[in-house]
């Protein structure tokens, strides 16, 4: 008797389970195709130039030094491919991962000093306090920054550079610049970069004389580590118009970083 009841009720249940989801979804073709484009709203036929208009507008970036910028872009591309990246590969091949990570952390700790200065200059209280805590923790427990216990404790690094500080106080970006070796920037941000280097170079914590940023091996290690930790590759966009695309994205990204 129980069996006799079970079968119809099971059938009913399965048919219900099948019926339910279908009622909400858009129509599906016989061959199972869901036709995802059928739900989209399209512009009327004579007004379909949003892409062109938007893109052509976006190409307008103030770039008075364009010819020289383009030469430097190509120079950087070659230098990267022929010198910098092979050096980084060699460095990674020789150096154990453990040592590489210590080096990266060490330089990140030094970057926190300029980050702190810029956070203060932008009157960002919370960020200044976070960065101060990071420096204190990482320089002591983290053995001069070789380890990064602060991130593990929930205070991740938040970079602030002098270009952002200038932007915060209303300095416009100025002309777009392709810096030799350093890549895309602007007059304002390029200047900021110099100030930040000066700040980081003068970091001489605990009067630890043997670690000075001004020596050649130290600068070389800094450069290699910086390249290693930067994901950007020339040619990555794989487009004959890479220069234009980078120019737009970098310009917009800086605006956002400053606004943030």
């Amino acid at each position: 008797m129980v069996k006799n009841l079970l079968l119809p009720s099971l059938l009913l249940a399965t048919s219900l389970a099948h019926a339910q989801p279908d009622s909400e979804k858009p129509a599906v073709d016989d061959d199972g195709f869901k036709n995802p484009l059928q739900e989209l709203k399209f512009r009327p036929g004579l007004d379909q130039r949003v892409f062109e208009r938007s893109t052509l507008e976006a190409l307008e970036v103030y770039d008075p030094f364009e010819p020289i910028n383009r030469e430097i872009y190509h120079f950087n591309y070659r230098f990267d491919e022929w010198v910098l990246l092979p050096t980084v590969r060699g460095y990674r091949w020789i150096t154990p991962d453990f040592v590489e990570d210590r080096v990266t952390n060490f330089f990140n700790n030094i970057r926190d000093f300029s980050g702190l200065m810029n956070s203060l200059l932008q009157l960002k209280v919370k960020r200044s306090m976070d960065t101060t805590a990071r420096i204190l923790l990482n320089t002591t427990i983290g053995v001069l920054g070789a380890w990064d216990p602060a991130t593990k404790m929930g205070i991740p690094q938040q970079r602030e550079d002098f270009g952002q500080t200038l932007g915060y106080w209303g300095v416009p970006a100025g002309p777009y610049l392709m810096l030799p070796f350093f890549g895309p920037s602007s007059l304002r941000d390029g200047t900021g970069l110099l100030v930040d280097f000066e700040t980081e170079g003068s970091v001489d914590f605990l009067e630890f004389a043997s670690i000075s940023m001004d020596t050649l091996p130290m600068t070389a290690l800094w450069a290699i580590d910086l390249r290693k930790t930067t994901d950007f590759r020339y040619g990555q966009l794989n487009s004959p118009f890479e220069y234009e695309k980078i120019r737009y994205v970098v310009t917009e990204a800086r605006k956002l970083q400053i606004a943030e």
Binding site: T230, Q236, A253, Q257
Partner: peptide
């Protein structure tokens, strides 16, 4: 793009 560039820059590549 404004929503995305933030992500790109932080990520370091596009």
């Amino acid at each position: 793009f404004k929503k995305l560039t933030r992500y790109f820059k932080q990520k370091g590549y596009i």
